[in-house]
């Protein structure tokens, strides 16, 4: 048997100095590619019977969640544990915040306990950016309001790249509530940087024309664009963020924008279907579509773990080559 030689990486333009992951808007194409490459090689660790490597031994990863989350928080915790870091959850409802402590004071207290990384989810856009300016720990944005959710964007990119073997030149549809979706924003930045054509589709109240400024195409009739798509990412209606009144009824939304088998049949047979979850079966997509052959929804969850391991590893900055190869 023979093991293929590794592809020669292009010489990177600047020293690697990624300290925080705040959004895909701030990342270069090379940085995004480096994260995806690292995540692909982390997939192997999750397939071992002993799913753990000592890369982050002795480091502390704090989860600061000011909004409900189960899967993202669990995914980050598991990712940290697979790298042998210690993890600690901090939940806003039982904290001193309810006693009047400010957000920054809370973070500074956690920093004083030795947090190397803080994974932050907050309803206010820019909250992780604010922390990055006030504490010395690495900050990972796990979702800030309707702004960005970079690890979700990265795991969508990884799933597309693994399934389609490329991203450049693909046409990717983002369907649903683009206005209130941080997942959409991270997808748009990542996909356009890597050379995909992005079509945003939904009712005009949720997909305003001004989104074209982000380098996307805006469409309001899903049936008209289905045949052009290589990938469709079906976003959840953000009932908690939408003020209401953006569409007459859930049933009507589902009629025009729900992903049904009839719509899948309009598209190419190799259409890749993604959904960030949690999915509302029967609203954004029908059960037969969610569980059908085009769906990669559960692979997204697996890839999410690999992406979060990669990000935690890469923010630590410690990944020199063997000393003999560095001349040591």
């Amino acid at each position: 048997m023979s093991i293929a030689p590794p592809p020669t990486p292009l010489p990177p333009p600047t020293p690697w100095k990624l300290k925080h992951l705040l959004g895909l808007e701030e990342l270069s194409i090379q940085e995004i590619t480096a994260i995806l490459d690292t995540a692909e090689s982390f997939g192997e660790v999750s397939k071992r019977s002993r799913k753990k490597v000592p890369a982050l031994q002795g480091r502390i990863v704090f989860n600061l969640f000011f909004e409900n989350s189960t899967r993202t928080r669990t995914s980050f915790s598991l990712a940290a544990k697979r790298l042998s870091a210690d993890t600690q959850d901090f939940t806003a409802s039982v904290s001193s915040l309810s006693k009047g402590e400010t957000f920054i004071d809370t973070a500074k207290n956690i920093e004083a306990m030795g947090a190397d990384v803080m994974v932050v989810r907050h309803p206010t856009p820019g909250a992780p950016h604010l922390l990055a300016r006030h504490v010395s720990s690495s900050i990972i944005n796990a979702g800030d309001g309707a702004h960005e959710h970079p690890t979700q964007g990265l795991l969508d990119l990884l799933t597309i790249r693994k399934k389609k073997k490329k991203i450049e030149g693909l046409t990717v549809g983002l369907v649903g509530d683009i206005s209130h979706s941080r997942v959409a924003r991270s997808n748009i930045w990542g996909l356009t940087k890597l050379g995909a054509h992005v079509i945003l589709c939904g009712p005009p109240t949720l997909v305003p024309k001004c989104l074209e400024k982000l380098g996307c195409e805006v469409a309001h009739r899903l049936d008209d664009v289905m045949h052009r798509l290589d990938v469709v990412n079906v976003l959840r209606i953000q009932f908690e963020r939408a003020a209401g009144g953006q569409f007459p009824s859930v049933a009507e939304y589902s009629h025009f924008y729900g992903m049904t088998q009839a719509r899948i049949d309009m598209a190419r047979s190799d259409l890749l279907l993604l959904a960030p979850g949690p999915i509302n079966r029967g609203v954004e997509l029908t059960p037969e579509v969610a569980d059908g052959p085009n769906s990669a929804i559960l692979e997204q969850v697996t890839n999410g773990l690999a992406v979060r391991m990669a990000v935690l590893h890469l923010l630590s900055g410690k990944f020199d080559q063997k000393p003999s190869e560095m001349g040591l």
Partner: peptide, 16 residues
């Protein structure tokens, strides 16, 4: 890479 005990943040790009 994930098993070394003597890595430093040297600004090198990740090669895993």
């Amino acid at each position: 890479t994930l098993y070394r005990d003597d890595l430093t943040g040297s600004g090198r790009w990740p090669v895993l």
